[in-house]
Amino acid sequence: MTHEQFEVLSNQAVAACAVVYFLALLAHLAEWAAGRNAPVEQAAPVAVGGGGAEEPAATEPVDESAPELRRQMFGRVGLGLTMLAAAVHFVAVVARGLAPDPIRVPWGNMYEFTLTGTWVVVIGYLLLYRRYSLSWLSPVVTGFALVTLMIDVLVLYTPVVPLRDALQSPWLVIHVVAAIIATGAFTLGGMCSALYLVKERRASRPERRGGYLDRLPDLAVLDRVAYRTHAFAFPIWTFAALIAGPIWAHYAWGRYWGWDPKEVWAFITWVVYAAYLHARATQGWKGRSAAVVALVGLATLWFNFVGINFFFGSGSQHSYAAPQPTSVVQVVGEGPSPLRR
């Protein structure tokens, strides 16, 4: 296949996987609707420990009634569709890397970061699905994937171009892979924290019953899943932002830390998540406040991912990821020429 064909393939795969995510979302909404009036079994206390192997597989409540069977069927269909979508999504990412000449890692601009980041969120969800019995997270993840891909295609789409010199470094690959994985995991964790807050609010109004929220696990379980995902993401973020990033910056720009807006916000994200981990261990901050801190962390992370390039544009040396390079001296000679011969 030629490079152009790979680009077309990638674009088609993005469209296809978005459709499949949409179908998966529909299946999960149907699952939820079918379960609306069915009584909710108090879900068996889900083991969410650290080590892994010794945890018993979560037991689904045994209920043979027709609506319950239908509900489970919808759930399985949704899960299957999500796996299919993730596979097609993967094709989109890989084809994107094969499209430029010479081929490169598919992380050259925001469109590509977002494409890959969304995939990481879905994969993280699928990997943890059994271990943490994540069926309650399905509508959120599929809906998130769908919306993010739509925004990505409509707002952030960038045609394939080769990497700029500054980006051609093994540290780029390491730095960006780590940053994307951490972003995906933080996003998953943030979903759990958000659901925690929603559920906690609901708990104060017990009269409204039925529906999705009753299918959420206990607050303690939500909190623990959120913590586990954040605890996984935090060291990776530490590595991406405070080790690989500075090393790359050293080679590319001659300083390892320069308080460039992108670096400032990476630091802010790190500090806020450190505060989250602290909050979980501080009297009076556990639970609700900690969940809020986690969401603040996520907001700073996404702001850095997307916002910086729009709001600060050329002020950041990292603005290579902006749709249009506008900076003067720093981007000397890079970026496509507005005029072609």
Binding site: V264, I268, V271, A275, W285
Partner: peptide, 21 residues
């Protein structure tokens, strides 16, 4: 105290913002 550490961490994050603007 842990609480002070927490608040100082927040302050640090907040104080870093103007430098990016």
């Amino acid at each position: 105290s842990m609480r002070t550490a927490l608040i100082l961490l927040f302050l640090l994050a907040l104080a870093a913002v103007p430098g990016s603007v």
